[in-house]
Design a protein around this nucleic acid. Structure first.
Length: 519
RNA sequence: GCGCCGAUAGUCCAGCCUGGUAAGACUCCUGUCUGCCACACAGGUGACCUGGGUUCAAAUCCCGGUCGGCGCACCA
């Protein structure tokens, strides 16, 4: 298929580009690599940290209604029992030892062939049934091997004694730390409904086959928050007017099933809400808010984003409704972010399993109200996926004077360096002046790179590749009149300003970035 | 996890069929020159994924493993 070919070539190119420029490398590369795990290089870690800071600033520091949290990576095993991750995600599997070598879900196989319920059976009993009934592979008629269990959670042993009581799990999502720590937060802070608890952290999923560079990996940083409301007030969203006019692309379950639209319908979030696409108003609010964050703060092209509703069959065990924000890559639409309506499911489960009281008390004119909070929305996004999307969206190849120019047109606030400083020549006076400006910019809080190597053109191109928005060049005239050249990454235009105006001018040019991008 | 295909410098790639220890381009480093968009001159660093086997000799042939691509399955 053509799409597959494009996918392969595009990701291959991005992967080679990331490796070349120091964004990301295969982990343990000198030993051949390890599937599903990646290291971030000097450039990648800068971009990544800036994305993460932007997220935390936007959704925690600059908001009155969200607080931060950081749970342990190795988590109490009971947490995953209560959440349903242990039972829902342990699948009994059996392999064909005949011709086809296919893997089958053992429980489904027994249900299909023997017409029995398997819920009460353990792995051993199911295995015995296979040999007793002489079951064979439904595909090729070959013999079936020994059954195994597979769970997407990584586990480990805590302490020196290896027994079943010492098994613990590496978290597959941050959410459960927030739910199991919920009581602590409401008891130790003075949060008022509605509010959110946010966490950014590394999670682990033992994916069967990690694929597509940073897209499907086994270890990644997940940035998510749970937004809680009174279950009676899931549509009571006083902030909605702030985003009401946001233009969005909607691809709901109806469009997907009935194929009334091939890709999406365009409308405002207000119209989408009025047309009852969403089950609660807060979820609509948060989807629109993230849409705007992706375009305004991440510099991602809004025309390439759409909201896709999960089909019934895709929903996770805890979700009433889930919407993904997808990005249109050169190889098709792919999930960038998920936003689930988790209802009261998780808090109720933890209350049941732990016997802790996880309700919230609220006092108003009518008296004291007590309820289990309702998670209207869980915006959950992988940092690596944003990084990949920012790079894929920003990566441009242009032809300048018959030669290829590679430019990473990313938002200036995400660039690994704010500015690069070049001496036009390696003459001592110019070098000294350039060093002076370099230190001056750094003292003013900018991330600066000094580059004196090779020709001036090469230096511009090198910084184009890693997305440095501005280069400042010091020449002979600078020594006379203190004027320097600022060169713009995207337009390659040069402006001449006095050193005293430099910082102001850089800020101005940076602020013009989005406006310029729209043209 | 199965099947098919692949893996040679930082990058792109030649060589593999027909065994004799590797070429080119770009990048990178040094020096000279030039002096605002990778293009001058000279020199230099740098590679056969890994472990076995066959052979006098393996990048090359054979087997296992790792990683990657695609397909199947899986994907909270």
């Amino acid at each position: 298929m053509e799409v597959d070919k494009d996918l392969k070539q595009f990701l291959k190119k991005i992967m080679a580009f990331a490796n070349k420029t120091g964004i990301a490398y295969r982990t343990g590369n000198i030993y051949g690599g390890l599937a599903g795990f990646w290291d971030f290089g000097p450039i990648g870690v800068e971009i990544k940290n800036r994305i993460k800071d932007a997220w935390w600033n936007e959704f925690v520091r600059n908001r009155d209604d969200i607080v931060g949290y950081e749970g342990a990576i190795i988590t109490h095993p009971k947490v995953w029992e209560a959440s349903g991750h242990l039972s829902s995600f342990t699948d009994p599997l059996i392999f064909c030892e005949g011709k086809c070598k296919k893997k089958h879900r053992l429980d489904h196989l027994l249900e299909d062939q023997l017409k029995i319920q398997t819920e009460h059976l353990n792995l051993e009993e199911m295995g015995e049934l296979v040999s007793k009934e002489g079951l064979v592979c439904p595909e090729c008629g070959g013999n079936l091997g020994k059954p195994i269990t597979f769970n997407l959670m990584f586990n480990t042993q805590v302490g020196p004694v290896k027994d079943s009581a010492s098994v613990a799990y590496l978290r597959p999502e941050n959410a459960q730390l927030i739910f199991s720590g919920f009581r602590n937060v409401i008891d130790s802070t003075r949060v008022k409904m509605p509010f959110g608890i946010a966490q950014s952290g590394i999670v682990f999923r033992n994916e069967i086959s990690p694929r597509n560079f940073l897209f499907r990996v086994r270890e990644y940083e997940l940035m998510e928050f749970e937004y809680f409301t009174d279950p009676q007030k899931t549509n009571d969203c006083p902030l909605f007017h702030e985003v009401a006019g946001t233009k969005i692309n909607v691809f709901s379950r109806k469009e997907q099933i009935e194929q009334t639209s091939e890709e999406y319908l365009s409308m405002s979030i207000q119209e989408a809400w009025e047309n009852e696409f969403f089950k609660n108003k807060w979820q609509a609010y948060w989807l629109a808010t993230f849409n705007n964050w992706f375009t305004d703060k991440m510099g991602i092209n809004g025309k390439k984003l759409r909201f896709r509703q999960h089909l019934e069959s895709e929903l996770s065990h805890y979700a009433l409704d889930t919407w993904d924000i997808e990005y249109h890559y050169k190889f098709g639409w792919k999930e960038l972010m998920g936003c689930a309506n988790r209802t009261q499911y998780d808090l109720k489960q933890h209350q049941k399993y732990s016997k802790a009281k996880l309700h919230f008390n609220e006092t108003d004119e009518t008296g004291v109200k007590r309820y289990i909070p309702y998670v209207v929305a869980e915006p959950s996004v992988g940092l690596g996926r944003i990084l990949l999307t920012v790079i894929a969206d920003g990566y441009q190849e242009e032809t300048v004077k018959d030669r290829k120019r590679v430019v990473l047109k990313i938002h200036p606030n995400l660039a690994p360096y704010d500015v690069a400083v070049f001496p036009l020549q390696k003459k001592p006076q110019i070098l000294a002046k350039a060093q002076e400006i370099f230190k001056f910019l750094r003292a003013n809080g900018l991330t600066v790179n000094f580059d004196e190597n090779g020709s001036i053109g090469k230096r511009y191109r090198r910084h184009d590749e890693i997305g440095t928005p501005f280069c400042v060049t010091v020449d002979f005239e600078t020594l006379e009149d203190e004027n320097i050249t600022i060169r713009n990454r995207d337009s390659m235009e040069q402006t001449r300003v006095h050193i005293e105006m430099l910082i102001e001018e850089l800020k101005k040019l940076g602020n013009n970035y989005l406006a310029a991008k729209m043209i």
